[in-house]
Amino acid sequence: MSSEAALHHLDAAPPRRENFPVASLLLPRSVRRHLLAVYGFARRVDDIGDEAPPGERRELLDAVDADLRRLYAGRPPHLGVVRVLAPTVRACAVPAEPFHHLVEANRRDQEVSRYETFADLLGYCALSANPVGRIVLHVFGAATPDRIALSDRICSALQILEHCQDVGEDLARGRVYLPAEDLRRLGCAEADLTAVQNTEPLRDVVALQTRRAAHLLDEGAPLVGTLPGVARTAVAGYVAGGRAVVAALERHGHDVLGRAVRPRRTVLLRAWLRILARGR
């Protein structure tokens, strides 16, 4: 099967529900198109790393990486997953590096299934999550070094919260994103990750990661106040989504096995309005 045919086959996978508004209807249509293209690319690359036949994943990721190089060399991309980026790359002058990092994160997923420390996990987030925030800042023409540093904190927090929500799903893929150091210290064995119900040690580990993510969100939230107009609206929605997930995890007692812990829409909207008000 060709790379394009294999990627087309993955189109049948249902879209994932995000914890935050990816491209709110409050934003101009042109901006929404760019944001949907960026998140669509990120999710498609994740689908390759998670859902493609294991023996084909590296080859498909290499094909996407090569097609990105083709795009940035001024040649027409071969793959639909890269072609949709072309208008955004041209209009917003997005650099190539963040897109290549997203591909590299999924290569790492094929080789690394455990992270020893929280610092190690943040190193993974630097490839798997932070590039998306950097691309979004370029879409809004707001990618300054200070803003990028704040965005990285927000994106790492969102990634960590997603790992907290998806403990069982990740383990089914052979991966554990909860730091091994924390699992040992809090007495959580890998068997706890496959239990029918959450054990107290697992809840303690998830609670610890949730607190860390909440702290990162607090550190990154001042980004909202530095942004003008629609950029402020969009980024406030991302921070609000993270805070709504923190609230959901706390509401469920950090019990993440056998249930889908998702943010309540009303909680997200209230947080969004509060963050926008503070940003002004």
Score class of each variant (00 low, 15 high):
Gly40Gln: 08
Pro98Gln: 02
Arg107Gly: 03
Val224Arg: 05
Asp50His: 09
Ala240Tyr: 12
Arg58Cys: 08
Gly174Asp: 11
Ala149Asn: 05
Val89Lys: 03
Val205Gly: 04
Gln165Pro: 04
Gly133Glu: 04
Arg259Leu: 10
His254Thr: 04
Ala240Gly: 12
Asp170Gly: 03
Glu200Trp: 12
Val81Arg: 03
Asp182Leu: 15
Val235Gly: 04
Ala105Ile: 06
Leu161Phe: 06
Leu61Trp: 01
Gly241Ile: 10
Tyr238Asp: 00
Asp218Arg: 15
Gly279Asn: 09
Asp204Met: 14
Arg83Leu: 05
Leu276Trp: 01
Ser128Ile: 07
Gln209Val: 02
Ala236Tyr: 00
Leu127Ala: 07
Cys125Lys: 08
Arg57Val: 03
Arg153Cys: 11
Leu171Arg: 15
Val139Glu: 02
Gly253Arg: 10
Asn130Trp: 04
Arg264Gly: 15
Gly237Ala: 11
Ser24Gln: 07
His138Cys: 10
Ala260Lys: 13
Pro201Asn: 11
Cys188His: 13
Ala142Asn: 04
Leu178Val: 03
Ala86Met: 01
Leu208Tyr: 07
Thr233Leu: 14
Pro201His: 10
Arg173Asp: 01
Val176Asn: 04
Arg259Ile: 12
Val267Cys: 09
Pro98Thr: 00
Val196Leu: 14
Glu104Lys: 09
Thr88Met: 00
Tyr177Arg: 09
Val112Glu: 15
His8Tyr: 13
Ile135Asp: 00
Cys188Asp: 11
Pro28Arg: 07
His254Met: 02
Asp204Leu: 15
Ser30Cys: 03
Ala73Phe: 09
Thr88His: 01
Arg185Tyr: 12
His8Arg: 15
Val112Thr: 15
Asp170Thr: 04
Arg75Tyr: 08
Gly253Tyr: 08
Val139Lys: 02
Asp120Ser: 12
Asn198Glu: 13
Leu68Glu: 00
Ala189Ile: 06
Asp182Met: 14
Val176Met: 00
Arg243Gly: 04
Ala126Leu: 04
Ser2Arg: 11
Ala105Leu: 08
Pro263Gln: 10
Asn106Met: 12
Val103His: 11
Asp170Met: 02
Ala42Glu: 01
Glu104Phe: 07
Val224Ile: 11
Pro77Asp: 04
Glu116Asn: 07
Glu4Gln: 15
Asp218Asn: 13
Arg17Val: 15
Ala195Tyr: 02
Val224Lys: 02
Leu137His: 04
Ile275Cys: 12
Leu269Met: 14
Gly253Lys: 11
Ser30Gly: 10
Leu216Asn: 04
Ala149Val: 13
Asp170Lys: 05
Arg107Glu: 05
Ala244Thr: 06
Ala191Glu: 12
